[in-house]
Amino acid sequence: MIQNIKKIFTIVTMLSVTAVFAQQDPQYTQYMYNTLTVNSAYAGSLGHLTINGLYRTQWVGLDGAPTTQSFTLDTPVAKNVGLGLSIVNEEIGPSEEQYIDANFSYTIKSGNTHKLSFGIKGGGRVVNIDWTKGSHRDPDVEFRENVTNKFLPVVGAGMYWHGERDYIGIAVPNFLTKERYNYDDIADDLVNERMHLYLIGGIVFDLSAHTKFKPAVLVKYVAGAPIIADFSANFMFNNVFTLGASYRTSDSVSALASLQIAPQFMVGYAYDYTTTELQNYNSGTHEIVLRFELISRKNGLKSPRFF
Results as ranks from 00 to 15, higher is better:
residue 2 I to K: 13
residue 6 K to D: 10
residue 7 K to A: 15
residue 8 I to S: 11
residue 38 V to A: 07
residue 39 N to V: 01
residue 56 R to E: 00
residue 58 Q to L: 06
residue 59 W to H: 04
residue 73 L to I: 14
residue 75 T to H: 07
residue 88 V to Q: 06
residue 89 N to V: 13
residue 91 E to Q: 10
residue 96 E to K: 15
residue 99 Y to R: 12
residue 101 D to L: 15
residue 102 A to D: 03
residue 114 H to F: 14
residue 118 F to C: 07
residue 118 F to Q: 00
residue 122 G to T: 11
residue 129 I to G: 05
residue 130 D to I: 05
residue 135 S to F: 15
residue 140 D to P: 04
residue 149 N to K: 15
residue 150 K to N: 13
residue 151 F to P: 03
residue 159 M to R: 03
residue 159 M to L: 15
residue 160 Y to C: 06
residue 161 W to Y: 15
residue 178 K to N: 13
residue 180 R to K: 13
residue 183 Y to S: 12
residue 188 D to P: 03
residue 190 L to V: 13
residue 190 L to D: 00
residue 194 R to Q: 11
residue 202 G to N: 08
residue 203 I to R: 12
residue 207 L to K: 07
residue 212 K to W: 06
residue 215 P to N: 02
residue 217 V to Q: 00
residue 220 K to L: 02
residue 222 V to A: 09
residue 233 A to Q: 11
residue 237 F to N: 06
residue 237 F to G: 05
residue 239 N to K: 12
residue 245 A to P: 06
residue 247 Y to E: 04
residue 252 S to I: 04
residue 255 A to R: 01
residue 263 P to V: 05
residue 268 G to E: 01
residue 282 N to G: 08
residue 284 G to V: 02
residue 288 I to G: 06
residue 295 I to A: 03
residue 299 N to W: 14
residue 302 K to D: 09
residue 307 F to T: 04
residue 307 F to W: 11
